[in-house]
Design a binder for these strands. Structure first.
Lengths: 121, 121
DNA sequence: TCTATAACTAGTAATAATTCCTATTACTAG
DNA sequence: CTAGTAATAGGAATTATTACTAGTTATAGA
């Protein structure tokens, strides 16, 4: 993959946030550095970065959010504040259980737990 | 909620399929019975039916799919054939574990296991 | 049965999220 | 350095969904 100023900027922005930004948020942040960048470039590079294993796409309802945390993990989503928090819930034995029970080869588990966080209980 | 011919048709169509149809698929099926139905009507009624607890919305990447199975359940998604199969993987003890560990009140768990089904291994 | 009314509809326009297309640019080999 | 070419960029187009409006229909009560 060839070097690109735009891609580097996008990568840094995502890596320096703890929220799980949408493409639009990343686009607006990148515009501060590269004012004439286009949204298409943001999407394309996010996809490229994901393919390179530098990033993860998570779906919050039907909108994509991007996560620099590429370790396998899950999310707690508070319906009050919308906060999305990283947690590790699905373990190795789960994968082998699914394999055994359903003859299904697991690549990846996407889990979002929806509820109320301690701040809003 | 008042009776509506259109809503009844939509409900029957979703309840009689084992696939997890998109709004567009449901729209096309409903058109066979009610040729001049509009896509907006389909979306509005799917939302109403979900609020009534007659249906569930699941998100497959960034498109919505509808599921008559309102029991809490999970999905196996084959990356080869795109098939989405209902399974029951998340149990009661999981919910209480999350509550204990993260002080997080669980309403609902959305889990999709992505991998390869036995037909495409 | 008839009427009032509030929920509903089709159709269209708007919005939001994402992908596609074509000119431009960076890099490589000569 | 220059030409060739493949990756990249910006903007237009597409897709999915929601909002709006004017007309229609189910249903409760007179």
């Amino acid at each position: 993959m060839r070097y690109s100023h735009q891609r580097e900027a996008i990568k840094k922005i995502v890596q320096n946030t703890n929220c799980h930004p949408t493409a639009d948020w990343i686009f607006n942040q990148t515009k501060i550095i590269i004012p004439n960048i286009s949204l298409g470039t943001v999407y394309r590079n996010l996809k490229l970065l994901e393919e390179e294993g530098e990033m993860n796409t998570i779906y919050d309802g039907n909108i994509a959010r991007y996560d620099w945390n590429t370790e396998s993990h899950d999310h707690l989503k508070c319906k009050e504040c919308g906060d999305l928090v990283d947690v590790h819930l699905v373990h190795e034995e789960f994968t082998s259980k699914v394999k055994r029970k359903f003859k299904f080869d697991v690549d990846n588990v996407e889990m979002t737990v929806i509820g109320t966080c301690s701040k809003h209980a």
